[in-house]
Computed example of a mutant assay.
Amino acid sequence: MLPGNERTKPPLAARASAALALAALAACLACLVLARPALASPSYSDVGERGWYGGPHGCVAYVSERGFMTGYEGTDLFGPDDPVTRAQAVTAIYRAVAGDPEGLTTDPSSYSGIADESGFSDTRGGEYCTAAVNWAAAKGVARGSGGLFRPDDPVTREELMAMMYRSVDGYWPYGFAEPDVAPRTLLDEDAVSEWAVPYLVWGNKFVIYGYPALRWSAYLMPQKQATRAEAAKMLKRFDMGNLWFLRNGYPSES
C-alpha cells in the first residue's frame, strides 16, 4: 500500500470484490463498445480455427484487429507457437496502452528516424520497437539487467505479466493491483520468482487464469517462455478488463 493512501482506500475485501466485479463488467462492455476502430482481421495460414486461440473471436484475431500484434512481415504467418521476444512484448503492450497513433512501431517511414533514448547498451534507433523500448524504459515497464534490455531474448510468462502490471501500475483508483490481494490456488506457485510474486498475484487474478493450453488449469508455468499465442491471450484479457477502464473512465465508488 502506498504511503498516504490509508484513509482513502476501502477495506481490502471490498476492494477485491469491487475489482472482480469491474473486471467482469469490463469484459461484457468491451464486447459492445470498442474504444478503437477495429482493423480488418488478417487471415493467418497457421492460425485458422485452431484450438483456444483461433477463430474470428479468438485472441489472435482480437489483437490483430486492434493492431496490438501483427504477423511476420511479408508472410501470412502469425507464429502462434513461436516464443515472443522481449522487443515484441513491449511493442505489443505499448500499442495496447499508448495506442501508437502515429505508427511509430508499424510505419518504417515513421520509426526509421527515432533515436534510441532507452539507456540500454544493446538497443538502437530506427527499429520497429525503438519507440516502445524508449517508452518502456521511461515508464519502468521493462527494466533490463546489467544495462542490457536483451531485445531478442524470449520473455517468460512471469516477465510478460510484470511488464503488463507495470504499464498500468499507479493508474488504478481502487488499489487492487497490489500483492495483498490473495491469488487463486496454484499447484506451481513455488516456481514463481521472488521478485515476480506481486505481479503474478495480480495477473493470476485478472489476466492469466492459469495456463491456457490446459483448460481451467491450476498451473501458471511462470518460468515457461511465453508463446505469441499466449501473449495474445493475455493481451486480450488485459485490454478487455484493465485498459477498457483506462480509456473510458472508472465508475465512482459508493
Rank of each mutant, 00 (worst) to 15 (best):
R66E: 08
E49V: 12
R50M: 14
L104T: 08
W202E: 04
L77I: 09
A18S: 10
L34W: 12
A162R: 09
A137F: 10
L220F: 14
D82M: 10
A142W: 09
G55L: 04
S64K: 00
D180K: 10
A182D: 12
Y94L: 10
T105I: 02
A177R: 11
T75S: 12
S167Y: 08
A132T: 07
W216F: 15
P42K: 06
Q225F: 15
L20P: 02
R95I: 02
S112M: 04
Y174S: 11
A226Q: 00
D81N: 03
F68V: 05
V192H: 04
N248E: 09
K9L: 15
R7E: 15
A213D: 13
F206H: 10
R247N: 09
A27F: 11
V47R: 03
C31F: 13
P3D: 00
S193T: 09
G146K: 02
T185W: 15
P198V: 08
C59E: 08
V155Q: 02
E230G: 10
S217A: 05
L39H: 04
G48L: 09
F78K: 03
V133E: 03
E158A: 01
R215Y: 12
G103R: 07
G175L: 07
R184L: 08
A191S: 12
P108G: 01
G99Y: 03
T106I: 06
R95G: 04
R36A: 02
A132W: 03
A92H: 04
A131H: 05
G58S: 05
K233E: 14
Y199W: 14
G48V: 11
L246K: 05
L160P: 03
L200V: 13
A138L: 08
R215P: 15
S17L: 15
V63Q: 04
V141L: 01
Y111P: 02
Q223E: 12
L187R: 14
P10I: 15
A14E: 12
G119R: 08
Q223R: 14
V155H: 02
A218D: 03
V133M: 06
G103P: 06
L104Q: 03
A213Y: 03
G74K: 06
L243N: 05
S193G: 10
P56K: 00
S64D: 01
Y53G: 03
E230I: 12
M161I: 13
S64W: 02
G241L: 11
L148I: 07
G99Q: 01
D122I: 06
A14C: 09
G79A: 00
Y62K: 06
G170I: 08
S112C: 09
V168G: 01
V33Q: 13
G146W: 07
C28E: 13
S254M: 13
T91Q: 01
T130K: 05
T156C: 08
Y171V: 09
A137T: 01
M163S: 00
L160N: 02
V197S: 06
S121H: 13
L77K: 11
V155C: 08
A23L: 14
P173M: 08
A177D: 15
G203Y: 06
A182R: 11
S118K: 07
W195M: 01
S252D: 14
E253S: 13
